[in-house]
Design a protein around this nucleic acid. Sequence first.
DNA 1: TGGTCGAATGAGAATCATTCTAATCACAGG
DNA 2: CCTGTGATTAGAATGATTCTCATTCGACCA
Lengths: 121, 121
Amino acid sequence: MAVAELLAEQADFRSAQQIHAELRSRGEAVGLATVYRNLALMAETGEIDTLVRADGETVYRRCGATSHHHHLVCRRCGRTLEVSGPGVERWAQAVAKEHGFTDVSHQLELFGVCPECRAEG
Amino acid sequence: MAVAELLAEQADFRSAQQIHAELRSRGEAVGLATVYRNLALMAETGEIDTLVRADGETVYRRCGATSHHHHLVCRRCGRTLEVSGPGVERWAQAVAKEHGFTDVSHQLELFGVCPECRAEG
DNA sequence: TGGTCGAATGAGAATCATTCTAATCACAGG
DNA sequence: CCTGTGATTAGAATGATTCTCATTCGACCA
Ligand SMILES: [Zn+2]
Ligand SMILES: [Zn+2]
Ligand SMILES: [Zn+2]
Ligand SMILES: [Zn+2]
């Protein structure tokens, strides 16, 4: 348990497989199933954020902010910044209400190339 | 090929598997690989929209609007509405620029329960 | 100290969407 | 007809995630 939590000290989003591999390479005899179990658990409690990449793989991250926020992710290196937009939240609520939808949630992520990666080419 | 296009006349997002199954049940001897190939092709040309669901499955839809837009999807029945938010687009650009990110894109979808589904319970 | 019970774990099998592969098929040109 | 090109197919291969189940680890108690 402390294992998965410890690993969550990574700066950017990691897949369950990456986390598992990293734990193994550190000598931890942890099973893949356990990694998935605990990630799912922490995701439920809101302890970590999850994000489904375009290729369908789910990645996880322990964020600094505990309140609702979104992410600006570098498409190349994965560097991740937490961002928030009150205006967006209001817009989402308004649009949903306008169409009579209730129990609204939304999913929003920004992707781009960070300054460092752009410098490289 | 007209096959996949024909099927795209569905109202809401469908997975490749669903589309394949539906074509087969209509007697079309279409292969799964062909469905994927053509969906990918149409997605590239912008002819259809794609969206990765929370469970990792990719779903496709032929939208009415050809310009950039987002979706308000019923979590229960899948009914989908196209929505747009100029403010959100501006916000995304601004946030990215503020952090020096370039080549920015974003992914935004709204989920909720539509009036019909709420009426049921 | 030993024994018991239940929750957590890990190895590997099972599942499921997606992609790859090799064999066919359709068909235009010669 | 015969052949080459490109699309199509069934089925195998891949890869992530989930399931199964025997085992381990503690907590608790006699
Ligand atoms: Zn976060
Ligand atoms: Zn970067
Ligand atoms: Zn659309
Ligand atoms: Zn609905």
